[in-house]
């Protein structure tokens, strides 16, 4: 008994012509090339359904429109009219950031020392950012979004660490980039912003650029705002001293730390940082003590 191998199914492709001999096939090939040659002068290949026409985009002069979800680097949003930033210092982006390039300092009420849902400083290292967009995905307040501006190349390293003032963009800017995406989240984001604004005071949480504009319009509070924003003549030494004192105090006792954390130069950034560090140190000390 012989084994008959089963024939696989045979598919016939009909290309609408029989066998071509004597150079007809070559001539047909030349015809195809000539068609492309002709079409390359007369039209653009802007639609994938076309098979011929120039597809080159001459980049610096011509650009293809970027899709809404295109992402280059993260930016922070603020509300156009009030200048209030959408960010509430929830640290979600800082936590999720794979290369760990986001550094947030939460704002504190200068009067009470209580944390306020706003950022004091927001540092982002553009040079190490990998544009994954996880920060924008995770942000519950739609405060951090991905920009479309990709022409950031530079030969300097320092400007690639971007601070809060340089990260901020008005909401209208993002709405222009990605109208569809913004329309999806607009209502929720602005509602949450209302909640955050209620817990803010003074110029906290207002974009510096917008705050300066508001100050010009409204003269009397401008002086106060200026004082708050920039403690005139405050020299660094006092702040550094305060920081050292804070650290020493933290070492000495966990309870004392809370008091030291409110030195005279509270407004100064360095002092505030020192205070935060002191508190953290004190807490750690307390935990260790408790553990022991």
């Amino acid at each position: 008994m012989t084994h008959e191998p089963k024939q696989p199914n045979t598919y016939t492709v009909d290309r609408g012509r029989g066998r071509e001999r004597g150079g007809q096939g070559l001539a047909a090939g030349l015809g195809v090339v000539m068609r492309h040659f002709r079409d390359a002068f007369t039209r653009r290949l802007d639609n994938p359904a076309k098979t011929s026409g120039v597809f080159t985009v001459q980049y610096p002069e011509e650009r293809t429109p970027l899709p809404e979800a295109s992402r280059s680097m993260p930016i922070l949003l603020y509300e156009d009219t009030s200048g209030h930033e959408l960010c509430t210092s929830c640290y979600q982006c800082q936590r999720i950031c794979p290369p760990q390039v986001i550094h947030i300092t939460q704002a504190k009420d200068p009067a009470t020392g209580k944390p306020v849902p706003a950022v004091a400083e927001f540092l982002l290292e553009y040079d190490a950012c990998m544009s994954c967009g996880l920060c924008a995905e995770v942000c519950p307040f739609d405060a951090i979004k991905m920009d479309h501006d990709f022409e950031l190349s530079t030969d300097k390293r320092d400007p690639m660490t971007v601070n809060r003032a340089d990260l901020l963009r008005p909401v209208s800017y993002y709405a222009g980039l990605a109208p569809g995406h913004w329309a999806d989240v607009k209502d929720g984001a602005l509602k949450k912003l209302q909640g955050a604004v209620r817990r803010r005071s003074g110029s906290i949480g207002i974009a510096p650029y917008r705050a300066a504009q508001l100050a010009v319009v409204d003269a009397p509070p401008a002086e106060a705002a200026a004082e708050v924003a920039e403690p005139a003549g405050m020299d660094d030494k006092a702040a550094r001293l305060a920081a050292i004192r804070a650290r020493n105090a933290a070492k000495q006792s966990a309870e004392a730390a809370a008091e030291v954390a409110e030195p005279a130069g509270m407004d100064d950034k360095a002092a505030r940082l020192a205070a935060i560090r002191a508190r953290n140190a004190a807490k750690r000390q307390a935990d260790e003590d408790g553990g022991a």
């Binding site: 090339v33 492309h36 040659f37 079409d39 390359a40 002068f41 290949l45 011929s52 026409g53 120039v54 597809f55 080159t56 001459q58």
Partner: peptide, 10 residues
């Protein structure tokens, strides 16, 4: 230039 046009380039 010519071969580029034939290949839909510039």
């Amino acid at each position: 230039r010519i071969i580029a046009r034939m290949q839909d380039r510039l």
